[in-house]
């Protein structure tokens, strides 16, 4: 079976600094894959290489078996690759509904039409409402995003991404900055993600990682140092030495 997402010997350097080296990743459809590693391991760079925000110096990125290494970010999105951001990237003056509608309109090709009223795209609005209901954001649909509590804003971040109906979803520290009282909202949303999506999650919170992931890749200094099931990773002495040992519950 072709992998939903695959990287082959991906590499990137800034001058003499190798921030990504020889990274081979493979996610099947429906995968729940976590990417962990100490600060500065190159996790965000790797995400940027996969999404196309950066272009690699070597290696390939494959989506559903197709080489997308040369495609710009927006084209990869069209091929089913979506991501959330570590720091919220929202349209904070617009309502939650409009944030999601922008994304959906883009996917269904309505956003290229400059003559049709936005309010006439009822299929876009209906889909947005349905998506918000699924994420339990419907009560906030008409509220400007900046007035939402932070945890809900993180949820909007995920909602925008799901508006793309991705086959591969990259979650970049989805719970970052969310107060612990609200973190269950994010956990519930992640648990409820459609099953067939391949999910790659970057997370520092080991609780979330071990609860969510069926497979873990450990990154250090730009390269993969271990891969395996959560049990294997938890028992890997090398990983413990460079990473888990550093600070217990990081």
């Amino acid at each position: 079976m072709t992998a939903a997402l695959q990287t082959i010997a991906l590499g990137k350097h800034f001058g003499a600094l190798h921030v990504t080296r020889q990274v081979n990743l493979s996610l099947a459809a429906g995968a729940r894959h976590a990417l962990i590693g100490p600060n500065g391991a190159g996790k965000t760079t790797l995400i940027n290489l996969i999404t196309g925000a950066l272009s690699p110096d070597e290696g390939q990125v494959l989506l559903g078996g197709r080489d997308v290494t040369a495609l710009p970010q927006a084209r990869r999105v069209k091929q089913g690759l979506a991501r959330t951001y570590q720091i919220n990237q929202l349209f904070s003056d617009l309502s939650v509904l409009e944030n999601v509608a922008i994304s959906i309109a883009e996917r269904v090709g309505a956003a290229g039409n400059f003559w049709r009223r936005a309010s006439a795209n009822s299929h876009v609005i209906d889909e947005a409402v349905e998506l918000l209901a699924r994420l339990k954001l419907d009560a906030y649909a008409l509220t400007p995003v900046r007035e939402l509590p932070y945890g809900r804003q993180r949820l909007v971040e995920i909602a925008i991404t799901l508006g793309q109906k991705p086959t591969v979803l990259l979650l970049d520290e989805p719970a970052a900055g969310v107060p612990s009282a609200e973190s269950h909202i994010i956990l519930d949303a992640i648990a409820a993600l459609p099953e067939q999506i391949a999910v790659l999650i970057i997370e520092h919170d080991m609780d979330i990682v071990f609860r969510f992931a069926k497979f873990i890749t450990v990154l250090a200094s730009g390269g993969i140092i271990a891969q395996g099931t959560p049990e294997q990773i938890a028992g890997d002495a090398h990983v413990r030495a460079v990473y888990l040992g550093q600070g217990g519950d990081v």
Partner: peptide
Amino acid sequence: HSAFGRSLVGIKGNVGRMHGVGTP
């Protein structure tokens, strides 16, 4: 007031995110 116009506002507000939702 079209979806096109909304996407422009999106580009003005946060161009990185618009790349991220597949906007050309």
